[in-house]
Amino acid sequence: MPGLEDLYREIILDHYRTPRNRGELAPPAAHAVGHNPLCGDEIEVYLDVADGMVNDIKVGGQGCSISQSSASMMTQAVKGKSLEEVRALVHRFRSMMSIEELDESAAEVKLGDLEALQGVVKFPVRIKCAVLAWNTLTEALTQTAP
């Protein structure tokens, strides 16, 4: 059995205790709500996109340490990035979670702090916790598509 230290890395607990970019953005910011119907976790993503760039992102909702820290780290990773970069990052993260085959063109995408969530793969039940924010981000992105 994999140890809890693989799951609850210090950086994860730090983002859980002190989540970054919490809050809301007023319309016309894109807004999506994601639920995990099995456990009741909920994530809201607000996305301010202009000229193909993510100017700002905020998240709300509640859930476990994995879902909340993943959301917090995600906001830091996508803020200031182009939509193209964000989509590549989403793909890279989902492939790290072993739910997407990694496209070679995305192999160079840097995950940075997000790599701390690598250990989640060893706890398959928790993968859905880690990807909830990313699925919600993807939903918000569809609203910004030109």
Binding site: L7, C39, C64, S65, I66, R126
Partner: peptide, 11 residues
């Protein structure tokens, strides 16, 4: 959070 609690208890 109950998820985290159940994960630790499972160990």
């Amino acid at each position: 959070h109950p998820h985290d609690l159940s994960q630790v208890l499972d160990q």
